[in-house]
Design a protein around this nucleic acid. Sequence first.
DNA 1: GTCTATAGCGGGATAGAC
DNA 2: GTCTATCCCGCTATAGAC
Lengths: 203, 203
Amino acid sequence: MKQPVSEVRERILDVARELFIKNGYKGTSVRDIAAASETNVAMVNYYFHSKYNLFEIIFEEAFNRLQKKIFSTLSSDLPFFELIETVIDSYYEMLMEYPQIPIFILNEINQNPERLSERMREKDPHGVFLQMSKRIKEEEKKGVIKETPPIDFLLNILSLCVFPFIFKNLGSNVAKVSQREYSEMIVNHKKYVIQFVINALKK
Amino acid sequence: MKQPVSEVRERILDVARELFIKNGYKGTSVRDIAAASETNVAMVNYYFHSKYNLFEIIFEEAFNRLQKKIFSTLSSDLPFFELIETVIDSYYEMLMEYPQIPIFILNEINQNPERLSERMREKDPHGVFLQMSKRIKEEEKKGVIKETPPIDFLLNILSLCVFPFIFKNLGSNVAKVSQREYSEMIVNHKKYVIQFVINALKK
DNA sequence: GTCTATAGCGGGATAGAC
DNA sequence: GTCTATCCCGCTATAGAC
């Protein structure tokens, strides 16, 4: 019994997504994908031309999701400290739902940095960085916050939000807690991070 | 003319360190190492048995140095804020020398989490975490700093120190700066991080 | 559209002569 | 200790039968 256009294609795509997220690009072979999707190597290359092309389709999907979420938060017109809180909230919310994404992205940076960053540059239609810089400048002028270089500040936000998820595997092992316990710990950690950042900003 | 015990071994080790740092573990082949050290593949395996073992020797070297440095800082009697500054300094100094280490660790985690975390647990013979907790408690009592859960605080320190290096490849491309410029940027970023952390702590 | 079979490459590791 | 030659593996990709 045959599904619409290509049930096989979908099956390969689903399996590949799972494997790429779990094992990364280099850690996933076309043979793995073929076996897990109960097809064969030739089928994967028939539908997707190459392993890299297949990877790109899946990567795009994950990447768009993350981008959309973060950008819509950053572009809102909330009061400054609430904006900060919401940005951090959004990162954590997103990353708790898709904890594999940072590892997925970071693992593959080495693979093709030019191409990936080309994409990221394309995907900044609202000038989020400029908008954020403007908000920071305003608050500096008001004397509410300390002198805050936008790049350094945003890098700190990114570090504080993303690293705990990257560190999850190692951290839970070293601390001898289950991944589940670590995840619960992260919820509390988020609250500390928000306070930490706001304290660091305040004059 | 022959050098002491094995001039060749040292040469291989030096070249390997350089290549691993520059191109990462997977990006460096034993053939590359052989060529650059003007020996051959057999020599590399004669002295180091395997590529993985060779890398581990280099990894161990860096890890031990960091460990030693952090501990000597923690057990010093520096004033608390200077202690924080020195710890952050040490992390950045080490990571600027071995920027590939975090990425190697990340890749290792996916492949063999048990082995790596076993090692890291072994390497805390002096109780860095306990030392730090003690100092934090003292400063809390003095009323100098806010309430500061040690785990969350240390995770923040780690995030702020390690993430910029993980992000290096992607970040430098997105910001359209060379890796070299990014590295220079990181030196300034470190200064901001130190101020950021100290402000966040202060009551 | 599906599959088998294999080409062709590049990797790590090793045997064995010197 | 050193080197050449080679093994064996896994990978991507494709040719060609059905």
